[in-house]
Amino acid sequence: MEFKDIQHTWQQQSEATKLPDFEPAKQQLTNLRKKQRITQLILGSTGIILIAFFFYISAYKLSGLFIGMLLMIGVIVARVFIEIRSQQKLRKINVLLSFIEFKEQLIAYYQKRKTLAFKTIPVLLIIYNIGFVIMSYYFYQYLSRGFFYYIITSYIVSFIVLFIFIRKQVLKELDILKGLQEA
């Protein structure tokens, strides 16, 4: 078979494809923008409330339990912010660039994600665990043995599940990066 025949076969396809209505897509885009604005608003106010709460509480009572909780909540909030910023950066990559430039930007984006996975996230996980260890000291003092062991076991199980999930995500992104670099 000649390349001309291949090209002819190719160009014959999909001529009959019905043109889909674009209105739902426009609506979807408007909804997405609304949702993004709402998310930013919620996150912004949560941040402000958390900071205000910190100053309010710390003025009266700065216990170990509070510090432990603060470390754990702080890590979760930081992680959510990092993830949202990262998604925004991905969406902001300019699709009007040439294919080569666009690919380079994508590679740079996934390299940053790699740094995040191997440097930032481990630090955050360590801080998260420190927070839990501090809190568990108080759990041990004030809670019944049974409930204490229940909390510890639940924490270990949920941490392992979280770790497996993060690992899977990181491996997927490394695979994407490798694919882009080879392309």
């Binding site: 040439s98 294919f99 666009f102 690919k103 997927k172 695979d175 994407i176």
Partner: peptide, 16 residues
């Protein structure tokens, strides 16, 4: 076409 090829590259990342 320029937009199409870039969107293809981006889209395939989300739908491996």
């Amino acid at each position: 076409y320029r937009i199409t090829v870039n969107v293809c590259l981006l889209f395939i990342r989300k739908n491996k």
